[in-house]
Amino acid sequence: MNNWVKSGIPIQLHSKCIIASFQLDLHKDLLKLFQQELLDEIVKHNNIKGIIFDLSGLEIIDIIDFEHIRSIISMIKLTGFDTVISGLRPTVVSSLIMMDANIDNLLSSISLDEALIILDTKNDN
Rank of each mutant, 00 (worst) to 15 (best):
A101R: 12
I60A: 08
I76M: 02
G80A: 07
T79N: 03
V43R: 07
I48M: 03
A20L: 10
S7A: 11
S109P: 06
N46Q: 12
F66G: 04
Q36R: 13
I118F: 12
L78S: 10
G57V: 04
I97Q: 00
I42D: 07
I61G: 12
E41N: 07
S109I: 04
I73H: 09
L55C: 12
I63C: 09
V84L: 10
L107K: 11
F81N: 00
K77G: 11
I61F: 10
L107Q: 05
V92F: 03
R89M: 08
G8M: 10
P90D: 06
L119W: 02
V93R: 03
N47P: 03
V5I: 14
N2Q: 15
S71V: 00
S7C: 10
L33A: 05
C17M: 14
K77M: 08
L78D: 14
D124T: 13
D65P: 00
D40H: 09
I52A: 07
K6P: 01
T79Q: 13
L58P: 04
Q35E: 15
L38R: 04
P90G: 09
G8N: 14
Q36S: 14
S108D: 02
G8V: 11
H45D: 09
Q36T: 15
F34T: 07
H45A: 09
D40K: 08
D124V: 12
L106H: 05
S86W: 04
S7P: 11
M98E: 06
N47M: 09
I97M: 00
L30A: 10
I69G: 08
L119E: 04
V84P: 11
I42N: 08
G80T: 10
S56K: 03
I72M: 01
I110K: 14
I97C: 00
I60P: 01
N2D: 15
L58D: 01
F34W: 02
S94H: 02
L33M: 12
S74P: 00
I48F: 02
K49M: 01
L96M: 06
N47S: 14
A101Q: 13
Q36W: 06
S111V: 01
S94L: 00
S21L: 06
D82S: 12
D29N: 12
I69Y: 07
Q36M: 09
L26Q: 03
V92S: 03
L30Y: 08
I85R: 06
S95I: 06
I61A: 11
D120W: 04
S7Y: 12
N3L: 15
T121Q: 07
H45R: 10
